[in-house]
Computed example of a mutant assay.
Amino acid sequence: MKIELNGKKALVTGSSGGIGLAIAQGLAEAGAEVVLHGRNADKLAAARAAVASRHPGARLGTVQSDLATADGAAALCAAHPDVDILVNNAGYFAPKSFTEITDDDWQYMLDVNVMSGVRLSRHYLPRMMAANWGRIVFISSESALQIPAEMIHYGVSKTALLGVSRGLAELTAGTGVTVNAVLPGPTRSEGVAGFFAEMAREQNVPQAQMESDFIARHRPSSLLRRLATVEEVANMVVYACSAQASATNGAALRVDGGVVRSIA
């Protein structure tokens, strides 16, 4: 299967690093024009350079905005009012005891992880429907199905994305537009790698051991028995954005390494 996205314009939020950057790389490889997004100008410039280095001649754009706010989402939409592919990847995680999660913590988690995608989809979906072609992908998590006790607010935000994704997909019936969610399992993104590196330093153990211990203790149902790579997650996203995935709509596509013990 050769995925070709020539002539398509893709926006990947939170793509200055980690899974988002890997998705941007994959879409650029497939021939799409890619708009990278982030909050930090230096990281965003480095991400653009990384994609350009791997894919010389790729059509690339960047936009800097804070998607935790309505103004940030509006600025992004104004900069790029029309796209064929929207990957709602912007998000963050924050391990914290439930009793210590404040109202502000809850609100910020929902603003970043949920409302960012809601606002952008509200803008781009009608335009895709008018064109009778489009792809919206929400990056959820296996934590949406198995809420992690160590960060309940994160899990709840990812569950919400499944509801939004499926609801929007219902609106696309009979059109060339699809809306899907992708559920990564534990993945060695920059943020996750940094988290484990810090824990390894604090406990004076190798980072590889820390990662292995985490999977064994906190994700014992994993069949992969390791962290996924960002490229493994990106491969699923690129497929969901392709013409070949035209019959995949309203789905929750798992790249969880078998963590979720379910056949449905």
Rank of each mutant, 00 (worst) to 15 (best):
T62R: 09
V63P: 00
Q64C: 13
S65G: 10
S65F: 07
D66A: 10
L67C: 09
L67M: 06
A70F: 07
D71P: 08
D71C: 04
A75F: 11
A75W: 03
L76H: 06
L76F: 02
A78Q: 11
A78N: 09
A78I: 12
H80I: 10
H80F: 13
H80A: 08
P81V: 00
P81L: 00
P81F: 06
D82S: 14
D82G: 12
D82L: 10
D84E: 06
V87Q: 05
N88K: 02
N89S: 10
N89R: 05
A90S: 05
A90K: 00
A90G: 00
A90H: 04
Y92R: 15
F93A: 13
F93S: 11
F93I: 09
F93R: 01
A94G: 11
A94K: 15
P95M: 05
K96R: 14
K96E: 12
S97Q: 14
F98I: 07
F98T: 08
F98K: 08
T99V: 15
E100M: 11
E100D: 12
I101G: 09
I101Q: 15
I101K: 11
I101P: 08
T102S: 14
D103V: 06
D103P: 02
D103A: 13
W106Y: 05
Y108C: 15
Y108M: 15
Y108V: 15
M109K: 09
M109A: 12
N113C: 04
N113L: 01
N113W: 03
V114T: 05
V114Q: 04
M115A: 13
M115W: 15
S116N: 06
G117H: 05
G117K: 00
V118T: 04
V118R: 05
L120N: 02
S121Y: 11
H123G: 01
Y124G: 04
Y124C: 03
L125V: 12
P126Y: 10
P126N: 14
P126C: 13
R127Y: 06
M128T: 05
M128Q: 04
M129F: 08
N132K: 10
N132W: 07
W133Y: 05
W133F: 01
W133R: 02
W133P: 05
G134R: 00
R135M: 09
V137Q: 01
V137C: 01
V137S: 07
I139V: 10
I139S: 04
I139H: 05
S140R: 03
S141R: 04
S141T: 02
S141D: 07
E142H: 12
S143E: 08
Q146D: 14
Q146G: 11
I147L: 02
A149K: 11
I152T: 14
I152P: 01
I152R: 08
I152A: 12
H153N: 09
Y154F: 06
Y154N: 07
S157Q: 04
K158F: 11
T159C: 13
L161N: 01
L162F: 03
L162P: 03
G163V: 06
V164D: 02
V164Y: 11
S165F: 07
S165E: 07
S165V: 03
R166F: 08
G167P: 01
G167E: 08
L168V: 09
A169G: 08
A169M: 00
